Amino acid sequence: MGENNTSVYEFEPTNIDGEVTPLQKYEGKVLLIVNTASECGFTPQYEGLQNIYEKYNDQGFEVLGFPANNFGGQEPGSDEEIKQFCNVNYDVGFPLFSKISVKGEDQHPLFKYLTTASNPDFTGEIKWNFEKFLIGKDGELVHRFRSDTKPESDEILKAIETSLDS
């Protein structure tokens, strides 16, 4: 565990409109937290993320996108530019947050927790854009997926459905 953080509900990141957003507001929901980027080979995954968000949202599922410029300079824009890009290109309806750092010395505390929390898959640094962290209804990390696991893959869909049913 990271610095005594026991769930994602303890974090209060800023959303893409500049408002502090306690993750406590998502308590009891299943969350897929993703570090995103606008100029990445995986950027088309925004479409898949939006599709699964629409598919499961009314069952208590949220996708939370955290733009980050840690990998290959693939998220150079401002929050406003990122928001516009996501709306225009992918009609993103799920919550987006203010651009943060997901690794290194300035790593956001939420991602420090996510990369160190125990889970059945793996821990350690994020390797690239669009890694995915599945959070159960109790706010704890259930599964972690690397960038190349597509949002609509059987692996992720099964994990979401299992978490929603639990």
Rank of each mutant, 00 (worst) to 15 (best):
D17M: 10
F71Q: 01
A37T: 01
S38N: 07
F145V: 06
E19N: 15
P109R: 05
Q84N: 15
V88K: 14
V8W: 00
F42P: 11
L31R: 04
F94G: 06
L110N: 01
S166M: 13
D91Q: 15
I126F: 02
H143N: 14
E12R: 14
N129G: 07
E47V: 13
F145P: 06
S166R: 14
P13V: 00
P44S: 07
F85D: 03
D165F: 13
G77Y: 00
E161Q: 15
V142I: 12
M1G: 14
P76L: 06
L96C: 03
F71E: 01
Y56M: 10
Q107S: 08
Q50F: 04
Y56E: 08
I82Q: 00
Y56H: 12
N87L: 15
E54R: 15
H143R: 15
E155L: 15
Q24V: 12
F61S: 05
P95R: 13
G124S: 06
F42A: 13
H143C: 08
E140F: 03
Y9S: 09
E81S: 11
T21G: 04
L114E: 03
F85M: 10
P76D: 06
F97N: 05
T43Q: 05
E54Y: 08
V63H: 03
G139K: 04
A68D: 03
K158P: 09
V102G: 03
Q84T: 15
S118F: 11
T6E: 12
Y46Q: 07
T116E: 15
P22R: 08
F66N: 01
K55H: 13
D79Q: 06
A68C: 15
A68H: 02
N57A: 13
P44Y: 05
E3N: 11
V102L: 00
E140A: 07
T149D: 13
F42T: 10
S7I: 07
H143F: 06
D106M: 09
G48P: 08
E75A: 04
E140R: 14
D17Q: 14
T14K: 08
F133D: 04
F111D: 03
P67G: 03
L141H: 00
T149P: 09
E39W: 11
E39P: 10
E27Y: 11
L141D: 02
G72P: 10
V142S: 04
K127N: 12
L164M: 11
K25W: 10
V142A: 06
H143Y: 09
K112L: 08
E27N: 13
N4G: 06
Q107N: 10
E19F: 11
I82N: 00
G77P: 10
M1E: 13
H143I: 03
D165N: 15
Y9H: 10
Q59K: 15
G124L: 04
E75D: 06
L32S: 03
L23G: 05
